[in-house]
Design a protein around this nucleic acid. Structure first.
Lengths: 150, 150
DNA sequence: GTTAATGCAAACGGTTTGCAGGGGT
DNA sequence: ACCCCTGCAAACCGTTTGCATTAAC
């Protein structure tokens, strides 16, 4: 069984369970999302897919991503003020956001995930998600900066 | 010297240093922001101020908050998808966001602020800001829930 | 008097929605 | 055959901007 078949089975099962039709658009959006290692916006997915599916519309991408988010297949991110990003990585992880190029990189820090919260914090309510956002300048941008100086 | 005078001196100095005029709108927006313990939106400030300054416009509030943000007097928050919130708390702190009522509470956790980042994380670039977002249900909403059950 | 800030209204841009036609089951 | 999904276009809504007027310096 190829990984293509695997993906197809996965999304077929997911649509089935949710009582949704498996349309070519949903399938392609699903595949495109999985192929993205970073955190694409709806518009990015739309532009990539238009090459394969010339008639696909941006609002279908939005609708589908919203549905996938509700089903828990992907997650909406709040990291940017201007456009919503989507995350296909469902593992517990955090983000490093470059203030220069806006790239969002995944971070894993299990020791922090497992650390106890201070009493003063856990007393505020029932805490379900802990998400760390680091902001700074990524190596790629730092290197560019150094090259310009020389 | 009253705290009113203190505030007035502070904002007067800030405007002066930035070569900005001290207008009644700026003064009142500044005062209103300081009086807010939570994280108001531009529209919230606008609505509160309209009682005192009936002719103030929403875009002046936006412009002023943007200016204050650039001057470092306040900070923009990215925590909500729908509206931008502003934070007057300049101390290093984090946020607990109630998924039910959307209230944003400040969190202090100096041990975490001072903890070393894992090598795999610090190697990604120059990290300047660490901001933790906890999501869950705040006590106020939990209490409401319990009352409804009884 | 000079210059920057305000208020108005209109633009903007990302996202959502109503609707009619089309495609999956 | 049924009904959900799509594509189109228009609405939506928070935010920004151009411009003439006004007010701070």
């Amino acid at each position: 069984m190829t990984s293509q078949d695997n993906e197809l089975n996965k999304i077929r099962k997911l649509c089935d369970q949710a009582g949704m039709k498996l349309t070519p658009q949903r399938l392609e959006i699903f595949k495109e999302m999985l192929s993205q290692k970073d955190h694409p916006s709806a518009e990015f997915i739309f532009k990539k897919l238009r090459k394969r599916l010339p008639t696909i519309s941006l609002d279908t991408v939005y609708r589908t991503l919203a549905t996938f988010d509700e089903l828990g297949i992907i997650k909406r991110l709040n990291v940017s003020n201007d456009r919503t990003l989507f995350d296909t990585n469902l593992e517990q992880h955090h983000h490093f956001i470059c203030t220069r190029c806006k790239r969002v990189q995944d971070i894993y820090w299990p020791d922090f995930d497992n650390a106890n919260l201070p009493e003063s914090v856990s007393a505020l309510g029932s805490i379900q998600v802990r998400h760390l956002e680091l902001h700074g300048i990524c190596n790629k941008c730092l290197n560019k900066e150094n090259k310009n100086k020389v």
